[in-house]
Design a protein around this nucleic acid. Structure first.
Lengths: 225, 225
DNA sequence: GGCTTCCTTTACGCGTTCTTGATGCCGTGC
DNA sequence: GCACGGCATCAAGAACGCGTAAAGGAAGCC
């Protein structure tokens, strides 16, 4: 059975979700603030979290960070229409999907099913990402170029791993900084420039004209295959 | 069968809509004031609401707020030409579209169909939005036109993303400004003109006669598919 | 202790992007 | 017909973000 943790401070929303989810065979846990949510998540290990961003005690984004510190369980964010900046932050922080309040129950259920499906099938994924110039083996944490292994420092690997786990996708500076250097270093985009330059020097055929480690000015970076 | 709730205090308009909608196979509910409308909406859960802004008892915008508190059903606003401030407020409050009185029945029916279609297909959530001229991939943050990738600046992408996440739907200037430039820049509609012009130059076949990035004077913008 | 490796930090040049003001157009209302 | 508000377009300076190099410093290893 699938267990869902619902985190929201509005009782009527929690009630509505509990009724609908129970009726569809989910186990439902609830929490009305961030601290409780984090504790329940640790104790009960739900399969998926539905999280309202506007909590009374902790910022919703921090709750996501707190969860992402030890788990990759899917997180679906609920947010009001006007908080779109927050939504971006939430996704950067590691949320899987978001639903704008007010939401249709059908939509939420569909996204819930999709999130659970993704989480359960993800393990099968191919752990080797290949480009025309180099290959990244995510399972063994090794990079090869022209048959030879390329030595990367821990930080270099951390960056490349995130990009390789999102092949073709634009990854925001914030997410990269947060995942590699931690939440306190968000804003130090200079780090990214230095390390991307190093990665290019090691991996690109022509580092000054990168074909795979692409910069999207003002937004982030992308691993183009 | 699709159920439509018609809210208007002018009997002849209600009658005309009832006849036309019934003839096309819709179930029609009616209300002549805001309180009744809210009660009927709760009891009958229509699939879409057609709402006149000038009601005898409650302000139309408050009716929208009352609905949006618990449902995301589409709301199409009817309003007289002179109430343009109200119309913008209505969109910001969560209306999906508007039709100016006096209106053609064909136009209303078309918008009704579009609203219902959006509401029912929304759950599938295709991350790629396609028009006749270009495609927007929301997952990887890329735009293609005639097979080639089009480079967008962060601000251009921010605008296009919001429009693409509300395909076919009118997005108010206020919402665009708030989401892209932040709450302090609401009112700087000049930014919108400059950047919409840039987007059109990059994406429209004939930028001076846009087919997809549509201006709704005084209201906002719409991405027409 | 001395060495290497890696991380952090500063500085600078350069291209891109944003902002801002000016101008002309079009539709609406008077 | 005219004034007005909202819109489209253009242009130019300012501000910003990026890449690169290089030096100082911390941590680990022999």
């Amino acid at each position: 059975m699938t267990t869902v943790l619902v985190v929201d401070d509005e009782p009527q929303i929690v009630r509505a979700l509990r009724i609908n989810l129970s009726a569809r065979g989910y186990d439902v846990l609830t929490a009305y603030d961030g601290k409780t949510a984090l504790r329940v998540a640790v104790d009960e290990k739900p399969d998926v979290v539905v999280l309202d961003l506007g909590l009374p005690d902790i910022d919703g984004v921090e709750v996501i960070a707190g969860l992402r510190g030890w788990t990759s369980m899917p997180i679906i964010v609920l947010s009001a229409r006007t908080e779109s900046v927050l939504k971006v932050e939430a996704l950067d922080a590691g949320a899987d999907d978001y639903v704008t309040k007010p939401f249709g129950m059908d939509e939420l259920l569909a996204r819930l099913r999709a999130a659970v499906r993704r989480a359960t099938t993800q393990t099968v994924e191919d752990p080797i990402v290949t480009t025309a110039t180099f290959t990244v083996d995510l399972a063994v944490k090794k990079v090869h170029r022209d048959g030879a292994e390329v030595h990367l420092t821990p930080t270099e690997w951390g960056l490349l791993e995130i990009l390789a786990r999102n092949p073709g996708r634009l990854v925001s500076q914030k997410q990269l900084l947060q995942d590699v250097w931690g939440p306190t270093h968000v804003g130090e985009s200079q780090y990214l420039r230095v390390y991307l330059a190093q990665l290019r020097r090691k991996l690109e055929a022509d580092p000054s004209r990168p074909r795979h480690l692409i910069t999207e000015a003002g937004m982030g970076y992308r691993l183009e295959l």
